[in-house]
Simulated assay, not measured.
Amino acid sequence: EAHYNTDNRKVQFQNNVVLTKNADAQRPAGILKTNSLTIDTQTETAETQDAVEYQYGDSHGTANGLVYDHKKGFLNLPSRVKAIIYDPKNL
């Protein structure tokens, strides 16, 4: 489900939110799953307080909440992070 608020230009996704990113020449495929996600189209940020599961190439993990800033390319997993991270250069 998705709801767009025209006043604040935010999109609220709810109930089984799944984001996917296809692999390209420089980066592996990625997938993120959570129960809700708010995207601010003006600031190009996304956030949730719910549990998240993610996979990025061979790396994967879980966390409680996330904040992503697209302009800065910065992902913050603020609490209870559990991750297995693989460097593709060392595989």
Rank of each mutant, 00 (worst) to 15 (best):
A2Q: 10
H3M: 07
Y4V: 07
Y4S: 12
N5K: 01
T6V: 07
T6Q: 10
D7K: 15
D7A: 15
N8M: 02
Q12M: 12
Q12H: 12
Q12F: 10
Q14F: 10
Q14H: 15
Q14D: 13
Q14A: 11
N15A: 14
N15I: 09
V17M: 06
V18W: 14
V18Q: 11
L19M: 15
L19W: 09
L19F: 15
K21I: 06
N22D: 12
N22L: 14
A23W: 14
D24N: 14
D24W: 13
D24A: 07
D24L: 12
A25S: 14
A25W: 12
Q26Y: 12
Q26N: 12
Q26I: 05
Q26G: 13
Q26T: 12
R27N: 15
R27K: 13
R27Y: 11
P28M: 03
A29W: 10
G30M: 07
L32P: 00
K33A: 08
K33D: 03
K33L: 06
S36T: 10
S36K: 09
S36V: 03
L37K: 03
L37C: 06
I39Y: 04
I39H: 04
Q42H: 08
Q42N: 14
Q42V: 04
T43C: 12
T43L: 15
T43E: 15
T45I: 03
A46N: 02
A46P: 00
A46L: 06
Q49P: 01
Q49Y: 04
D50L: 06
E53C: 02
Y54M: 02
Q55F: 04
Y56T: 11
G57R: 05
S59V: 08
S59M: 08
G61N: 07
G61A: 06
T62K: 08
A63L: 00
A63V: 03
A63D: 05
N64E: 14
G65N: 03
G65Q: 02
Y68I: 01
Y68N: 00
Y68C: 03
Y68D: 01
D69N: 15
D69I: 04
D69H: 09
H70R: 13
H70I: 11
K71R: 15
K71F: 10
F74G: 00
F74A: 06
L75S: 09
L75T: 08
S79Y: 04
S79F: 02
S79A: 14
R80W: 05
R80H: 14
R80D: 15
K82Q: 13
A83W: 02
I85N: 01
Y86M: 03
Y86G: 02
L91Q: 12
L91F: 06
